[in-house]
Design a protein around this nucleic acid. Structure first.
Lengths: 208, 208
DNA sequence: TACTGTGAAATATTTCACAGCA
DNA sequence: TGCTGTGAAATATTTCACAGTA
């Protein structure tokens, strides 16, 4: 319960897991740190050190059992279970998330969606029902919604965040443009503006 | 041209810029490091150190001129110009990207989209025309396409990446599920699976 | 006075290099 | 023999604390 890892290590573990899942589907049973690291774009030492922070899963002189390592990393990341997600905001981004196979396949399951717009309420998108915000508290309890995923901007994002918090959601992933200002006791908030990836590329292209 | 910055610094600069753009729109003229840092969720020392790595833009005893700082960071990040993007893959994610105001507003402009699927070719989505891949080399030259944005998976992603490289694209941003294996001389590749953000949250929820 | 800019100190992360083991 | 696991060394990043200045 108290495991502390550098955030970069956690995100690399997520990366390793993606590759392991793929190898596993392809039926590969064994992999060496060097090969796995190469596939993930990190050094072998880095990979082994990351793994050593959470346990010793390999066999000296041999390598790692793909399935066993996959299972271990899943457990460590909390990916050995189903997470119930609530979508806040039925814009293009929100609809793309509902359609994301990566999330569905990995146990991140959108159970309900919420919006203010009359045109969306009552619709079913990718098998997910769109509710009005009045129904939020009831559904959080009833469907055990844990993570709220926000795609809205500005005041709408802020209001959605508050409503979700009041309804009993434990964590918010904000994929919208504006960092959430809400500070709420016991609520875990991650602001994750994916468009930063474009700035990184622009920077590197600009400075060789 | 040769400016070297830690990647974390670059992504924080992108964050600062987002907040500055907002302040600028709201007409605020001045901001202190402490306040800006607070808004961005970093320490004031961190913010000042980040800025000091690229220059000294503040006024001691006063703070930073919002517009001037915004302009400087834009220049440093290569955000003081229009980037021409090519979308590779007209799935839900691709269509969400075409609709992303954040990108349009910040100079990341999708100029053309490419797909194999007959049903998409010839369509216009968010004012962007969808072409078949034969037209890729011509359009890269004609429209000066610099960054290819890939939303596809597996073999399709790999093939799209190769075609884009051969057509003369300078950089690829891969938002699809699989790290690109392509290694091509002079091509800048970023794999940026945004779904990692969900794993990070799951990890933190699991380990308090 | 009230801030920024920045060396120096403190931490954190990565790499090295090899001991340990199937 | 051919790997992993891991202390120790090397780097990198963050924080501290205060000199510098409008």
């Amino acid at each position: 319960m108290k495991l502390k890892l550098p955030q970069v290590t956690v995100s690399r573990l997520a990366l390793y897991l993606r590759v392991l899942e793929k190898l596993s589907r392809q039926g590969q049973e064994l992999i060496r740190s060097e090969e796995l690291a190469e596939r993930c774009g990190v050094s072998a030492a880095q990979l082994r050190k990351d793994l050593s922070l959470v346990g010793a899963f390999g066999v000296r002189g041999v390598g790692y059992q793909v399935r066993a390592l996959e299972k271990e990393i899943k457990r460590i990341l909390g990916r050995d279970r189903i997470w119930h997600l609530a979508l806040g905001g039925l814009n293009e981004l929100g609809r793309a998330l509902l359609a994301e196979e990566r999330l569905a396949r990995r146990g991140f399951r959108f159970v309900a969606a919420f919006d203010w717009r009359e045109e969306w309420i009552g619709q079913v998108i990718q098998e997910v029902f769109v509710y009005s915000l009045e129904q939020l508290p009831y559904l959080v309890k009833e469907s055990d919604l844990e993570i709220g995923v926000i795609t809205l901007a500005g005041k709408e994002a802020e209001l959605m965040a508050e409503k979700m918090y009041q309804a009993g959601i434990k964590a918010l992933l904000n994929l919208g443009p504006d960092p959430l200002e809400l500070k709420a006791e016991g609520l875990l908030i991650h602001n994750a503006d994916f468009t930063v990836a474009f700035d990184l590329l622009a920077f590197e292209l600009t400075h060789h």
